[in-house]
Simulated assay, not measured.
Amino acid sequence: MSLRGPPDDRSPAELLEFGVVNLDKPPGPSAHQVAAWVRDLCDVERAAHAGTLDPKVTGCLPVLTGTATRFSQVFLEGSKEYVSVLELHDEPPADVDAIAAEFEGPLYQKPPRKSAVSRRLRVREIYELDVLEVRDRRALLRIRCESGTYVRKLCHDLGLALGTGAHMGHLRRTATDPFDDADLVTLHDLSDALGRWREEGRDDWLRETVLPAERALTHLPSVTVAPSAAAEVAQGAQVYAPGVIDADDAENDQLVACFTPNGAAVCLGRMVGDPDAETGEVVELERVLV
């Protein structure tokens, strides 16, 4: 059995089969439709997006291709960032910033009626809520929050607190860990890069648009395992202390990503033991990636 080579040394076909595209979702199509377009463009069996965006919402929508879809769950672990227009129903009070700051921290939210999940009260954390600008009856917000936060509901509740009433206007996602909007790729960029590679044999554009799937794991604590241990993991074994070469600090039960020394992803799992111990289980498998 052969393990994957170093991420930077992979062929274009290998990139497409285990890759990620930091896509700039356009307004109109659903996130599911966009992922299907990426799948068809890349000519792979599967593609999966990282966190649903409503059809009208634009911005950062990482899409995993091929076998990388096995670990789409990692995007539930990180934070999201949005820029939103808050449409106020009356003239704003003078203390908009102070009232908005009170929403930072854990919030109770019930998903809206049209959501795809059960409408049970749950807690989501708002890490930062900044009012960037207020003009007439509009406020421009920057929101950094826990995955699964309903920004539309947040805007409604903020309008109640302001005493004006409000609803969410335009919404754009500017980041989803570990990606942001600094290097977004459009569907046209992806199509052009694939055409250049298939028609001219030049892969320089492709390598700028389709990244090794390991790029989607950089926000997780990492564990480096020996190639022999990785081969055992590929057969379903857990990660045991003798096979661990190095490990980042991680709390018990925290999701971690395991790699071979050349940087190739091996598996996702939960930290359950001491990586510095001589014996015992260190990582309990959740997804095997080789």
Rank of each mutant, 00 (worst) to 15 (best):
D180W: 10
D181Y: 09
D181E: 14
D181T: 07
A182V: 06
A182E: 12
A182I: 07
D183N: 10
L184F: 01
L184S: 01
L184C: 01
L184Q: 08
L184A: 02
L184W: 06
L184K: 06
V185A: 00
V185N: 02
V185I: 13
T186A: 03
L187V: 11
L187Y: 07
L187S: 10
L187D: 02
H188D: 14
H188N: 10
H188L: 12
D189H: 15
D189C: 03
D189Q: 03
L190G: 00
L190E: 00
L190H: 05
S191T: 13
S191E: 15
D192K: 11
L194Y: 08
L194D: 09
G195Y: 05
G195K: 02
R196V: 14
R196D: 12
R196C: 13
R196E: 15
W197H: 12
W197D: 06
W197P: 06
W197S: 09
R198W: 09
R198L: 14
R198F: 05
E199K: 10
E199G: 04
E199A: 13
E200F: 11
E200Q: 12
D203N: 06
D204R: 14
W205K: 11
W205C: 06
W205P: 00
L206S: 04
L206M: 01
L206R: 00
R207M: 08
E208M: 08
T209E: 07
V210W: 05
V210S: 01
L211A: 08
L211E: 08
P212I: 01
P212V: 01
P212M: 03
P212K: 09
A213D: 06
A213N: 04
A213W: 00
E214K: 07
A216G: 07
A216N: 06
L217T: 10
L217N: 02
L217C: 00
T218S: 14
T218K: 08
T218W: 04
H219I: 13
L220N: 12
P221W: 13
P221N: 10
